[in-house]
Amino acid sequence: MPNDSDDPSRTGSSSCRADPGQEGMGRRELLKAGMGTMAALATLAGVTAPLLSLRDGPSLDEFLQRHYTQLTPEMMEKILARIEHEIAFRYGVKTSVRDYKPIPDVEFAYALNLNRCNGSRRCVYACMKENNIPLDHPEQAYIRVVELDNDSLDLEEGNVLYNHDQVPQEGKYYIPIQCQQCRKPPCTKVCPVQATWTEPDGVTVIDYNWCIGCRYCMAACPYEARRFNWSRPKFEPEQINPDMGYLSNRIRPRGVVEKCHFCLHRTRQGKNPACAEACPTGARVFGNIRDPKGKINFILKNKRVYILKADAKTIPRFYYFFDR
């Protein structure tokens, strides 16, 4: 911080050293400034050197892509083709990426029977396979199963890392937790760029091409449902599920957030989500809550239903219930 003024021999004229009017001085200063600039350029080159090995940077089209809600069908066509091409290029797999739209008059909801759930984590594995979550990143799975003692409802006493030869364990019960598809989602409210929103059929989705990766939504979620792509996912070609949805299970880029989307590429075609399909005990019931005669409404009317963290008033579309 010190300048030359602390040097008594130089005071006085020192402030004029930068003066363009003084020939000799000026040249020396100019030389110095020039050398400074050179040094700055050299430093800049050193600083940015790692960028030369950037392999998964965005293409210009990707960089300029608009928000999901501003895309025309023609733009979407092109984007889907581009994504298919990128996946083929990076992973050597031929895939079909489609933009599945919500079905009118359908609102999805989930109900999970806690008496039946046996903690086998089949739903977790099915989800990872369906949704292209790398198998070497089990923590990335959208569903986590919490093991609790029969006498406790306190998640802080639970164990998500249990590892037994036999499930269910004596005296334990299991709560699988995934995105609760809230009617008042705290995550969409906080996103600075509206990269995540709730669709008309009740599914909160993320535009992986719009998310800036600030992770504010992860901090906001009271259910710990969101995951971040800390690195670029790695796959063997045969591990990839080639039926992909733009807002759901396509391979996510690095640096964005993802989470459970009720398998909308399946459910919007009338299928069950992969987790419901895989559950060996029939604990998972998926359906349309707007259908008064549907399974979900039957459970809501006839069972003892409870929701997770009711005090957060997020009003989930995910219900837990007991048979007895």
């Binding site: 600075p192 509206q194 998310c211 600030c214």
Partner: peptide, 18 residues
């Protein structure tokens, strides 16, 4: 940020500023 290249999404009108 996970995607600093998308910082411009925060500019009003151009991006989608929440």
């Amino acid at each position: 940020l996970g995607r600093p290249d998308r910082f411009w999404h925060m500019t009003p009108y151009l991006g989608k500023f929440n």
